[in-house]
Computed example of a mutant assay.
Amino acid sequence: MTTNRGLDAEGCIAREGSLDRVAAAFAPVVAAARERIADAFGPERLHSAYLYGSIPRGTAVPGVSDLDLLLALHHEPTAADRADADALQAALDAEFAQVDGVGVLLFGTATLLSELERHDLGWFVACLCTPLLGPDLAAGLPRYRPSSLLARETNGDLALALPGWRDRAAVATTDAELRALTRAVTRRIVRTGFTLVMPRWGSWTSDLTASAEAFAAHYPERAGQMRLAAATARASVTARTPEADRAVLAVLIEDLGPWLAAEYTAVHGEKAPRP
């Protein structure tokens, strides 16, 4: 299976989002986010802000998709910074019915530009984030190719996530808790499955269906489980039941996940430990 999707003319991963791709329904949300980030953090704290996910890719669905933001601060985030980010999330989520949840990631610029994060958070900013405010950190980052190094540093730590997922599944009692966990698990599993085969596939995509099919071409014996994960991740939150979520979580956390973590380590090695 070959494709040049997601690469530029030089074979490097192209930045996938753009403000020009933001659909009209989400334009007021993005405008409000830009204004309120600037007001809340100001130039003394904020270096730059970015959008990522389906909204800047132009694939967001009103009432279903979430708004994903990354803020790069001049310093490492403090408790006060996180409190302001939480307030920003809550205000935007409450005001705009177009989005089903708002998430704000906070990092210091030193972390985002560090050697340790060069092929994880650095790649994320350079390739998956769309500049919204301030100078673009991508100017200080390299070009990236779909390599084994990139695979290892982006998703080579799946095994560390599995115990926490099991704990969350065991104590989840509400539909909202189950849906949030299912959303996180299915997306992470599909993205890990894709990056496992990414160097062999020779390209990049954030599309869940394409990711699952790329994986399936190399691991047909696990194709059904990965397609289940992708289909569940794509589904509207109103299209599932708690029983269905628990069934999917059991398959992914207890069967596909442990196998995928072991195969990933065998193929690409483990992600460099973080402090």
Rank of each mutant, 00 (worst) to 15 (best):
L121F: 10
C12E: 09
L106F: 06
L162Y: 09
V104G: 00
R145K: 10
G193L: 05
R187G: 08
S147Y: 03
S54Y: 02
A230V: 04
P258E: 11
A79V: 12
G108H: 03
P258M: 13
G42T: 04
S206G: 12
F41Q: 02
A180N: 13
S236N: 13
F96E: 09
E213A: 07
V248I: 10
A223T: 04
L116H: 09
V99Q: 00
E76A: 15
A266R: 13
N4H: 14
L105M: 06
G156R: 02
H119K: 05
L196S: 03
E16G: 14
Q225Y: 05
E254M: 05
S206Q: 06
L160Y: 07
R57W: 00
A24C: 12
R246P: 00
A24E: 14
T182S: 15
L228M: 12
L149E: 07
L128A: 15
L71E: 02
I253L: 09
G58S: 07
T3G: 06
L141Y: 02
G202E: 04
G140Q: 12
L106N: 08
R36N: 01
A217M: 05
R183G: 10
Y264S: 11
W165R: 06
V248T: 12
T209A: 13
V30R: 00
L178F: 10
T174H: 09
A83F: 03
E263T: 14
A235M: 11
V125I: 14
A110G: 09
L141C: 04
A223S: 13
P28C: 12
I37F: 04
W123S: 06
